[in-house]
Computed example of a mutant assay.
Amino acid sequence: MKKLSDCKKACKVKILKLHADSELKQRFISFGIMKEVVVEVLEHSPAKSTIEIKVGKMRIALRSKEAELIEVEDI
């Protein structure tokens, strides 16, 4: 199982599943982070504590712990 947190910079992946509790899952969905959506990893913070992704035209920063809850596959 590949997680979003495992992806390198400039990696494009498709979301397979969100392994988050219902509250966090709703927050992800409100940002467009949901099953079958393609996201691009833009940047990792120097300490790898956050990851910046692109969903559609929106840029979103996630904590690494949140990115670990998103199962993805390469496209």
Rank of each mutant, 00 (worst) to 15 (best):
V55Q: 07
I75G: 01
E71G: 00
K2P: 05
E71C: 02
M1F: 13
M58R: 15
A47I: 02
K8P: 02
R59K: 14
E73Q: 11
R59H: 13
D21W: 05
D74W: 05
K57G: 09
G56F: 08
H19G: 03
K48I: 06
L4E: 06
K35Q: 10
T50R: 15
A47F: 11
S49N: 15
A61W: 08
E23W: 11
S64C: 11
V37W: 00
S5R: 05
A61R: 09
I15P: 03
H44N: 02
F28V: 04
K12L: 00
D6S: 13
I15Y: 01
L69D: 05
S45C: 07
A67I: 04
A67G: 08
A10G: 08
R27F: 10
D6L: 05
E40C: 12
L18H: 09
A67M: 07
K57Q: 13
V39C: 07
A67E: 04
E43N: 08
V13M: 06
A20Q: 09
V72L: 02
C11N: 14
E66C: 10
I70H: 01
L24W: 12
D6Y: 05
A10N: 15
A20E: 10
K3E: 00
D74I: 15
H44Q: 02
E52R: 15
R27N: 13
K54D: 01
V55H: 00
E71V: 01
V39S: 02
K14N: 08
I51T: 09
K25H: 11
R63I: 03
M58E: 15
V55M: 12
T50N: 10
K14G: 02
M34Q: 13
S64H: 09
L4I: 04
E52W: 07
I51W: 02
K3G: 00
A20L: 14
V13Y: 06
L16K: 07
K25Q: 12
T50L: 10
K35E: 09
M58G: 03
